[in-house]
Amino acid sequence: MQQKANREPVLSVQNLCFSYDQKPVLENLNLEVFESEIFCILGSSGCGKSTLLRILAGLTKPSKGQVKFAKPDCKVGFVFQNYALFPHLTVFENIAYGLLESNKEKTKQRVDELAAQFEISELLSKYPSEVSGGQAQRISIARSLAPKPDLLLMDEPFSNLDAKQKSKLKPELLQKLRLANVPTILVTHDQEEAFDIGDRIAVMNEGKFVQVGPTYDIYHEPKCRFAAEFIGTGAFIDAAPSHDGKNIQTALGEIPMPKGCGATSNRKPVELFVRPEDLVHDDDSPDCLEASVVSRQFRGAHSIFRLRLVSGEEVYSLAPSHHLHKPGDKFKVRVELDHVLLFPKNH
């Protein structure tokens, strides 16, 4: 967890707007990034994340709003989605591109240092067309870190790698980024990536930040329907407030009304958001609910079961994978709701 108080943000964005061809792409974005922080912007394709990154880098001018850097003349490093390595230069020259030092020794030292860090020392004399995807990614990151930037921007850096490469490189990269101690903004559509790497996440939808905060908060306390749906798995089931206003009636039983929830007073229809881990598989416990299995997704150590409740609504349940229930089987669950998430119903 971060200590946010009493720290100046390295970068602060206020009321940023951008339109293209009269169509708004980014609307009223506010953002602050602090030292030694890895900030993730998470959103589906086309929501404007890359545009935001380009504005932060200074490659595009915003229509409205301000981008303020704590340091004047802030050096920004950028890692592009397809790495953008200069094809006519060797790997060494690529990494050294940002180092306009007249001292060749110093340049060589810095490049060697980074190459050792990213394990690409044997590739230094090759050309970008001769290296693999994973290697290119590392070269690209090394190149942007070489001039010791004050801020690092990464545009979907893992999207061009396969799963195995990703799972290997992500923790490595995380470690190296922490070592480098550079504030980073990473843009991605992969939530696992965001969870793995980000200290704070901003969920973006249609050019607006839907929610900004630490990973835990966003997962467990999504502030809106979109955030809830976008992050992790879950299902919506109908919920109606009980007559006394203290409980909520759902197909899973009665659930205490969360504090400070104003949904009931409006008398608008609401839905309860249920995550897989909220429904624990328990065949023995007395206050279990019966449900039937619709489908099962194997996830390695555990499986996610899609269940149909008596009411006909469908929910998810997380269970260790040695439970081999097949579609149609009876499946008993126990409700363990830590966070009650109510949202207005979509029409």
């Binding site: 950028f78 397809n82 953008a84 200069f86 190149r143």
Partner: peptide, 30 residues
Amino acid sequence: DLQLEDSAKLLRPKARWLKGLWGLRLALLA
């Protein structure tokens, strides 16, 4: 690749002419 020019702009923000964007463009057009 359009992002090559963006890369060059960010890595060498103050360089002009041959050391900067034009050097890259000429090399790619060779």
